[in-house]
Design a binder for these strands. Structure first.
Length: 208
DNA sequence: CACCAGGCAAGTA
DNA sequence: TACTTGCATGGT
């Protein structure tokens, strides 16, 4: 994938907070719609811990409208912001200095933060050695015949931890590359458009 | 028009 | 545990 697509330089976001916000907004949502929402937050000067803590939830929902599920996502953003203040006095630095296990456990207790969102925050905002699993990961590896398509999150994640070197850059890049591959060449309805990996997988691309 | 997008929680059995 | 449903916009 790296040979075909090159380095991905993830996450697309200028700050840890922007990455956290993006991780919530992109839940089951196209990234292009998320970017519009994030641009609105920037334009309104509300992409900061303090401003997000103070903004009215309905007003926030209006600003993130383009990302879909805006009412529920506005609440979820409030939940994670409140968590950062109540648990870490509003310091991301404190939050990121928690141990991996503690932080993941606590994030999963926040309503609206599930495993993928928690792991995305851990890997891409906190730069911890965490491998993110998403719908593309399951689709790609089940099409390759490695696992069933509805394999549980923690089970497929364990496969990566078992078989990959425990390396931050590798985890970071591997997930980003799978999103690229999935988006462009491994759709739900198999459609073959010249996947660049053709010929690399023992001569056969089984992804489409 | 149908389908899809970097999920999650809450309800039911 | 194993389903099912609601949440919603915007691009193809």
């Amino acid at each position: 994938m790296h040979q075909a697509f090159g380095p991905q330089d993830w996450w697309p976001g200028d700050s840890p907070l922007e990455i956290i916000v993006g991780a919530v907004l992109t839940q089951n949502t196209n990234w292009a719609n998320v970017e519009k929402a994030i641009n609105n937050l920037k334009k309104e000067k509300v992409l900061s811990l303090k401003a997000l803590k103070e903004i009215n939830t309905n007003k926030l929902a209006g600003l993130i409208r383009s990302s879909g599920y805006y009412n529920i996502k506005a609440k979820r953003l409030k939940n994670i912001i409140n968590f950062i203040f109540s648990e870490y006095r509003g310091s991301l630095k404190k939050m990121f200095s928690e141990s991996d296990e503690e932080l993941r456990k606590k994030l999963l207790c926040v309503n609206g933060i599930g495993r993928e969102t928690a792991d995305s925050i851990m890997c891409y905002a906190a730069q911890k050695k965490v491998f993110v699993v998403d719908a593309y990961t399951r689709r790609i590896f089940s099409r390759l015949g490695v696992c069933k398509k509805d394999i549980e999150y923690d089970v497929i994640q364990a496969l990566f931890y078992k078989h990959l070197k425990n390396d931050y850059q590798l985890f970071n890049e591997y997930h980003a590359l799978m999103v690229n591959l999935g988006k462009n060449y491994c759709k739900p309805k198999p459609l073959c458009h010249n996947c660049p990996l053709k010929g690399m997988l023992n001569g056969k691309c089984k992804l489409t």
